[in-house]
């Protein structure tokens, strides 16, 4: 009787059909969606970002491989899943492009080794690894983390490269604060000047949110829309996040237009649009249900604005996301959608 058994063990479990999607294809799409932003960034702000991305990616992949080896996991499927690349790109994009190379390297190491693999690797990290790296570095090296290439000075590529390699002698001449930081400082120095007057300096602030920076933000926005179209991300978290930022900034703006910048400025400045589409949408450390995603995004938006305007750091996206990462399991528990046939009418 056993002669005609034909169990091939190939058919482990139904369904035997599957959609042609994989973790890798999702991650590759995220990387593709970042490309327009990267391109605009490289053209308008600093081509050194490309070098930073190479440094971060190489470090991240190396760290990933080493950790996988240590944990006794196969390298092939995990190295090629693209998750380390996404993390490293986000690190490069949130760090200053002229940050010294070792800062980027330590950021990538912190993200992959501590925030990802020490918690159990892909799918297990409670915190967004890129944001952990950013937070750790900005707390440890606040000065280096706020030296941004001056958009107005037209720094040359070679100077930026030298800065990254730590060989630049006139670093201060190259740098300036980010528009957000500049605004904060200006407000502190001259509390009497209305904010509109300050923002009219288009050399620093551009049309909205900072010269050149608004173009980068717009490029992220386009990439994010494409991700939505590809159904890689769902609209709930970005919408919640943007709504949180816009709602609170609009409220403050209406309350005192002289002291608070417009919602438009806040949306297009700093990491808000990058965060909305590429950071709060991280599935692993975020919420799962649609309602949860919305609450997660909204709370992160409120916190990001609060930290950026009332806090000590120039931008609040990283910290707000980390704080919400802690709350994600609770939000998930409270927003579990009702099951088929068990809804209250």
């Amino acid at each position: 009787m056993s002669r005609d058994r034909i169990h091939t063990m190939r058919f482990i479990s139904p369904p035997y059909l599957s959609q042609n999607k994989s973790v890798r294809s999702l991650m590759v799409k995220v990387l593709l969606a970042l490309l327009p932003g990267v391109a605009v960034y490289a053209c308008l702000i600093g081509p050194a970002i490309l070098l930073q991305m190479v440094i971060a990616s190489a470090t991240a992949l190396f760290a990933e491989a080493a950790m996988l080896k240590l944990r006794g996991k196969p390298l092939g499927p995990f190295l090629s899943d693209g998750s380390a690349l996404v993390t490293s790109w986000l690190i490069a994009l949130t760090f200053p492009p002229i940050a010294p190379w070792w800062l980027t390297v330590s950021g990538a190491l912190i993200a992959i080794v501590i925030a990802k693999h020490l918690y159990g690797g892909l799918g297990q990290n409670p915190f967004n690894p890129a944001m952990v790296a950013f937070a750790a570095c900005i707390v440890s090296f606040p000065a280096l983390m706020s030296q941004w290439p001056s958009v107005t000075l037209d720094t040359r590529f070679t100077d930026q490269i030298l800065a990254v390699l730590g060989l630049s002698r006139n670093l201060d001449a190259l740098t300036s604060a980010t528009p957000l930081d500049a605004l904060k400082t200006a407000l502190r120095i001259s509390p009497e000047t209305p904010i509109a007057t300050m923002l009219s300096d288009t050399k620093i602030y551009g049309l909205a949110g900072g010269r050149a920076w608004e173009c980068v933000a717009a490029a992220y926005f386009l990439g994010g829309l494409w991700l939505l179209r590809c159904k890689v991300i769902r609209w709930h978290a970005p919408a919640g996040f943007l709504f949180g930022v816009v709602a609170l900034s609009a409220a403050c703006w209406f309350f005192d237009p002289g002291r608070f910048a417009s919602p438009l400025f806040h949306t297009f400045s700093g990491g808000v649009l990058l965060g909305a589409f590429f950071i709060v949408t991280d599935p692993v450390s975020g919420c799962a249900s649609d309602m949860g995603k919305m609450i997660f995004g909204f709370s992160a938006g409120i916190l990001a604005y609060t930290i950026r305007v009332f806090g000590g750091y120039p931008d609040g996206v990283a910290f707000s996301v980390l704080i919400l990462n802690v709350c994600a399991p609770l939000i998930d528990l409270l927003t579990r959608p009702p099951v088929f046939g068990m809804k209250k009418k």
């Binding site: 482990i12 479990s13 996991k73 196969p74 092939g76 499927p77």
Partner: peptide, 10 residues
Amino acid sequence: PPVFEIRRFA
């Protein structure tokens, strides 16, 4: 439960 050795595919 599925015994699905990921090593097998590595």
